Simulated assay, not measured.
Amino acid sequence: MAELWVADLGLVPYDEALALQRAVRAARQAERVPDVLLLLQHPPVYTRGRRTDPAELPLGEAWYRERGIDVVDVDRGGKVTFHGPGQLVGYPIARVTDVLGFVGLLEDAMVAALEQEGLAARGRAAEGRDWTGVWVQDRKIGSIGLHVSHGVTTHGFSLNADLDLEPFSWVVPCGLSTPMTSLSAERGGGPVDLRCLRKRVAHEVAGRLGVKQRLVTRARLERAIALEDDRAPVVHEDAVVQVAGDGAR
């Protein structure tokens, strides 16, 4: 049975995680590894997708950086979003043929995981790319933004567990003037067991892909992708999926 390798990386700086994604992508394109799901958190950072308008960061990059939030331009679809501790970020590096179907799969996996946490949510990708993600009534709790190169995805999704939501109010998240929420906020406050949420999401993604989940350490993953041979892979970027999200951006 085909496998999905799942690696729990903990708290990882954004640039470091992006470099790892690209190395895993090169290995996946070369069929050295199966599909991989990286699960992690980031220090505070805004990421800007290719459709981001400068007006969506109205206070200026210097203002954000003074408050300890980095600003990074990325090659995913979607617009600006925020990542920070207390948010579950997932980067699926997967071979896909139906990209929009894969977006729906990620929405469904997050919705199912939240349902197991006692929260009713829904995906809205069918309503148009600006509504892609996971919602609790009119509040957005999960975002998706992908990049596809030679049939393999990078970037992915983010799911707000118990992170500080205030930085979302300092930008126009995902290009929408809609409220952002979190699992903690919907429960009325308090911590969220991220380890449990992470396991639920990974299980749901693997199940919807119809594959067996295999947990791997970062060291095991790096050995498999032979990072020392992939420091400067030549990869032609051939598709950007224009979906709003974060995600995991």
Results as ranks from 00 to 15, higher is better:
Ala2Gly: 15
Glu3Gly: 14
Trp5Cys: 11
Gly10Ile: 12
Leu18Asn: 07
Val24Trp: 07
Val24Met: 02
Val33Gly: 08
Asp35Thr: 06
Val45Asp: 06
Gly49Phe: 05
Arg50Ala: 04
Asp53Thr: 13
Pro54Ser: 12
Glu56Ala: 05
Leu57Ile: 14
Pro58Gln: 08
Ala62Trp: 14
Ile69Thr: 08
Asp75Met: 13
Arg76Pro: 06
Val80Phe: 00
His83Ala: 02
Gln87Ala: 06
Gln87Leu: 03
Val89Trp: 02
Tyr91Phe: 11
Pro92Glu: 08
Pro92Met: 04
Ile93Asp: 10
Ile93Phe: 03
Arg95Asn: 06
Gly101Pro: 01
Leu106Asp: 11
Met110Cys: 13
Met110Val: 01
Val111Asn: 07
Ala112Leu: 12
Glu115Thr: 14
Glu117Met: 13
Gly118Leu: 15
Ala120Tyr: 15
Arg122Val: 10
Arg124Val: 14
Ala125Phe: 11
Ala125Glu: 04
Arg129Val: 15
Arg129Gln: 15
Asp130Phe: 14
Val134Asn: 07
Trp135Ser: 08
Gln137Thr: 15
Arg139Ile: 09
Ser143Glu: 02
Gly145Thr: 04
Gly145Lys: 00
His155Met: 04
Gly156Thr: 13
Ser158Gln: 10
Leu159Pro: 01
Leu165Ile: 05
Leu165Tyr: 01
Trp170Ser: 05
Val171Tyr: 04
Pro173Ser: 07
Leu176Asp: 04
Met180Trp: 00
Ser182Pro: 07
Leu183Ser: 01
Leu183Ala: 07
Ala185Leu: 03
Ala185Arg: 15
Arg187Asn: 10
Gly188Glu: 13
Gly188Met: 13
Gly189Ala: 09
Gly190Lys: 01
Gly190Ala: 09
Pro191Thr: 00
Val192Ile: 00
Asp193Thr: 10
Arg195Thr: 11
Cys196Asp: 13
Leu197Pro: 07
Arg200Trp: 03
His203Ser: 12
His203Asn: 03
His203Gly: 01
Glu204Leu: 01
Val205Trp: 04
Ala206His: 00
Ala206Lys: 00
Gly207Trp: 00
Leu215Cys: 12
Leu215Pro: 02
Leu221Ile: 00
Arg223Met: 14
Val234Cys: 09
Val234Leu: 14
Val235Ser: 12
Val241Met: 02
Gly245Gln: 01
Gly245Pro: 03
Arg249Ile: 04
